[in-house]
Nucleic acid binder design. Structure first.
Lengths: 219, 219
DNA sequence: CTAATAGTGTCTCTGAGACACTATCTA
DNA sequence: TAGATAGTGTCTCAGAGACACTATTAG
């Protein structure tokens, strides 16, 4: 074998949509190294787990997740990305629904909160680059697959669905064209229920037909 | 810091199109471990280089490459993917033109040759999975970008261009529709030259306008 | 003139996008 | 009945795909 000392971490870019904004979870560590610095949550990969398992573990440590979408993004390996030594990171992107956003308290960080992607604080490491990469991938996935179900609540209105697309892709769509398109894809079905407690005409509630992520060329 | 012993390698899936077939470079090692076993070329990442640099180094060691396309695919990290210990690999895909296929002799392998992707020998590690993943990515890139230029010679005929698409995507296209589409994308230009030494009407030669990989939605 | 490949135009159908009004609910 | 959002159809234009013949070269 070879002599090689490279440490391996997983970084999780955890997205959600809250209050008409795309947000990402950041943590502030209260112990060294990187004390008082915001970053995306990361941890070392254990020798007994593959990277995906490590990413799930990290994710569960921070949020109450049931149905979460997790996808490997890219491996960042700049020699100088971590001043302490050689550390490469396998970056993952996670999508959580508003319902699942219960941030757990946990040991090595003093704070954790969601930040809107267009007003992020200064970030440590190469985390800005990683988040930008993640946003691009998310946009691509939104346009070509049915992943949006992992951001929406289980039952949702067509307006909510459209809103999520508009927020993530950062553009607007014509109501009629959007509905026509979604209808033609056969990816959602009506639940028969309606919104309750709203002060206007209540909208019909829909749910996704298939949990599996398919290529559907949404928009 | 943490105690962690994980070795990091890069694996290169090197594609080319020769004799109307999509082929991939495999090596057979003549030293242990994995003696006499075919695999895709791989090597350990040095502590002083990032993964992409390692992949380029590996590539240059095996082929005479000038203009090569290299893209990170995915990081494979199954705990048991290497029986000797914990080894994760960052897989890359490379595209080389027929002109560049000069396989160098080198130290740790006894043999290296291109195999058609649809008749591969038995492979070590999880390399079958890696090649399948690479083929999918290549097909996607061919459909949505102008990467095909890294498989074709500098000057090529429209028939050769179409052939490359047909081979990689494993389907056929109508001549007129194919040309109409390519024409509408403005990604190639005529050189003014023609084929020479052929026993039929010589075809016009074209070249790609832009070396940069763009999203163009070819087919 | 034969063999082999290069090269070219039209029609149909589907889907994207522009666009405005009526329906239903609460207070 | 006012305020707020839900929900719906048509037309135009562009691009995908089906389809068959003529042009050019070497020998």
């Amino acid at each position: 074998m070879i002599k090689q000392h490279i440490l391996v971490t997983v970084d999780n870019v955890i997205f959600t949509v809250i209050q008409d904004r795309l947000e990402v979870l950041l943590v502030k560590r209260d112990i060294e190294p990187f004390k008082n610095q915001w970053s995306i949550p990361w941890w070392f990969v254990l020798e007994t787990e593959d990277c995906e398992v490590a990413a799930y573990r990290e994710l569960r440590e921070k949020t109450n997740v049931k149905d979460v979408y997790l996808e490997q993004l890219y491996t960042f390996s700049d020699v100088k990305r971590d001043s302490r030594g050689r550390v490469i990171t396998v970056a993952y992107m996670a999508l959580v629904t508003r319902e699942n956003i219960v941030i757990n308290a946990w040991s090595y960080t003093s704070e954790a909160k969601f930040f809107p992607v267009n007003s992020l604080p200064k970030l440590g490491f190469d985390h800005k680059k990683i988040i930008e990469y993640a946003i691009q991938r998310l946009q691509w996935k939104m346009e070509y697959t049915n992943v949006s179900q992992y951001i929406l609540p289980n039952k949702f209105t067509l307006s909510e669905l459209q809103k999520v697309y508009e927020i993530v892709l950062n553009k607007t769509f014509d109501v009629r064209n959007f509905r026509k398109k979604i209808d033609s894809l056969h990816i959602i079905k009506p639940t028969g229920e309606k919104e309750i407690g709203v002060q206007y005409r209540p909208a019909k509630l829909y749910k996704f037909i298939n949990k599996k992520i398919d290529i559907v060329e949404i928009l």
